[in-house]
Design a protein around this nucleic acid. Structure first.
Lengths: 356, 356
DNA sequence: CTGTTAGCGCATTCAT
DNA sequence: ATGAATGCGCTAACAG
């Protein structure tokens, strides 16, 4: 029925082992022999049996990239960059590092995250890259650490990208974290420098690391602004998912709580866009009446009207680096941990507050 | 080192065969025995060896979803919906349809597309979903058809979503196509009804099916608008990739070719946003000076300023349906082919042309 | 450089 | 309902 390596061997008049060797390219084979084998492969239209190969070699060429939301460009950019870096060696011969880089959408659900890890563990994945903020529930962290340790023990390279380090640090090849706290802080400092004091904050889901760090940066800046700077901050913070609708509704809520606020900082650019829509619908001008700021600097932020002040995260570079680390093509940073800086991008959506 | 099924069997004092049976749940096993086995699995923290299982069973639980650009929300929405539908049965027992739905980013490159198909073929994937427009090169179509036929012959279910049918129709479970032509036509008819005659068109990459169909719809509407309606259409069409930068540059080019054009129709929403940016930078108002229309109705189109007139494609529904078809959880449409309608969404970015 | 020999871990006959 | 035996297709020692 289906063509096997033995068939190829017979056609090329060599042993199965030899065929395996030319296919894997990890062993010297005479050029003439290789030619014959390759020709037989072509003629028979042979395709290697992955499971059999993985079973015998006790490793597979599958690499999993876990993302929280595949429809969010944040993850698309990171995952795309990682995938490109991982699949980079596709052309080189028939094998030589032909990885199957694959993205798994967890929807931000701890259960699905774990589920995917188990599935990848089943497949004896060569590597796993976890991207984006993590859920902070202690149970989940413990479970994840245990699971990742097991994966690592089985030979899977684990890389974290855009997510803080885990207790199971030694099992993890490298952790690439974003400076969410610093970015959040600089963003709010920018607003304060413009003269804003009544600043609403639209945070992400409460239990996420990314959410917490960005919020902490914001609060730190407020506190530093002087006595009372952080007073009532609780009241001016609203949590919600990382989507535009959340930004829209949170803005209405913030306006209800303090009709006199002069600026809104959002958990990310998408949320900020929702905030802009809500403000416009309320007849408020941006930035004349209310300034708005986002986070991430996704491509559309530049095209927004007005263009969005935000914090730039080098998503592509980080994703690519994670990909290389997963492949073992780049030395891990000292201590296996690196923080990627976040840069303030001051644009048109922020300005000094209106004077009464 | 690693725990195998035999270890579980020993601990549960049963044969390996029995363990296999309870794990796969496709064979009667006494409740008490099952209990013991499950407990042993837990205690030993056993994880099935996917490759071994796939080798023995000659099938795997891997499902591939191919997309042209993972950073484009169009694909994120389709793939996310499909993935959710495919992973739906995760909780049900330990096996029973636990698929590993996985998205592969081809970057729109025929070579990478083929490469991923080969990799999935290696893995003996249970199903493959191909999404988005295809490259129209005859060679590539032939190669793809052959490849997909081979996949189908090996038991892989092939589903096309948002892409026209292929010659190898009988090998394909189902094709879900969007009415790109009809949508393109209705969009331009809308512009014509508003009074526009000098309409620039920013098309996608020349060799893509999606590009061609949308363009054909546009041209058909222009031709129907009356004699000379399609005159000079070539001159007012610019091709480019499906990204904002392309929209920006194409708009400048169109303006150069005809400074008096009153409307621009773009290949998709992202391109349309780039067009808006270019128009603004040229000091032109939307829609007072120039109307702009997109395609797809991605979430951000509603938030754009002005909100974008576009053509709505039910991406989520289509992706979910493709997922169900891939799993065999939905009967294929008659003839294995269905066209999904495209609906005009008339919003603020289009208006009658200014009067001279 | 190439052939021979053993498994890899599991699903599946076939018995019982 | 359960156990024993066989082989899936390939890679990895070993020889030579």
């Amino acid at each position: 029925m289906t063509v096997t390596l033995a068939d190829v061997a017979a056609r090329a008049r060599v042993s199965p082992a030899t065929v395996s060797r030319v296919l894997n390219g990890n062993y010297p084979v005479a050029a003439s022999t290789r030619e014959r084998v390759l020709q037989a492969v072509d003629e028979l239209d042979y395709v290697l049996n992955g499971p059999a190969s993985s079973l015998a070699a006790a490793t597979s060429d599958l690499v999993g990239i876990l993302v929280n939301d595949i429809a969010d460009p944040f993850f698309g950019i990171v995952a795309g960059a990682a995938q490109t870096e991982i699949g980079r060696y596709e052309g080189t011969g028939r094998a030589r590092g032909e990885k199957l880089a694959v993205v798994c959408n967890t929807g931000g659900s701890p259960r699905r995250e774990l589920n995917y890890l188990t599935l990848l563990q089943r497949q004896r994945a060569a590597a796993v890259v976890l991207t984006g903020g993590a859920v902070e529930d202690p149970d989940h962290i413990a479970t994840m650490s245990a699971k990742l340790s097991k994966l690592a023990a089985a030979g899977t390279r684990v890389v974290l990208c855009g997510r803080p380090p885990l207790p199971a640090g030694d099992a993890i090849v490298a952790t690439i974290a974003f400076d969410n706290r610093g970015g959040g802080r600089r963003l709010t400092e920018h607003l304060i420098a413009l003269g804003h004091r009544r600043i609403g904050y639209i945070a992400g889901p409460a239990e996420r690391t990314t959410t917490r760090h960005r919020l902490e940066g914001h609060r730190a800046a407020m506190a530093a602004a002087g006595p009372g700077g952080d007073a009532g901050q609780e009241r001016l913070t609203v949590h919600g998912p990382y989507d535009r609708r959340s930004g829209y509704e949170a803005t209405l809520e913030l306006l209800r709580r303090d009709p006199g606020l002069t600026a809104i900082a959002a958990a990310n650019d998408t949320v900020a866009l929702g905030a802009c829509a809500a403000l416009r619908d309320q007849g408020l001008r941006i930035p004349a009446d209310v300034s708005v700021a986002g986070f991430d600097d996704l491509p559309f932020s530049l095209d927004a009207v007005p263009s969005l002040t935000t914090v730039r995260l080098p998503l592509f570079e980080a994703g690519a680096r994670a990909g290389r680390l997963a492949m073992g093509n780049e030395a891990p940073p000292p201590g296996g941990f690196a923080t990627i800086p976040a840069e303030l991008m001051s644009r048109e959506s922020t300005a000094p507050p209106r004077v009464h």
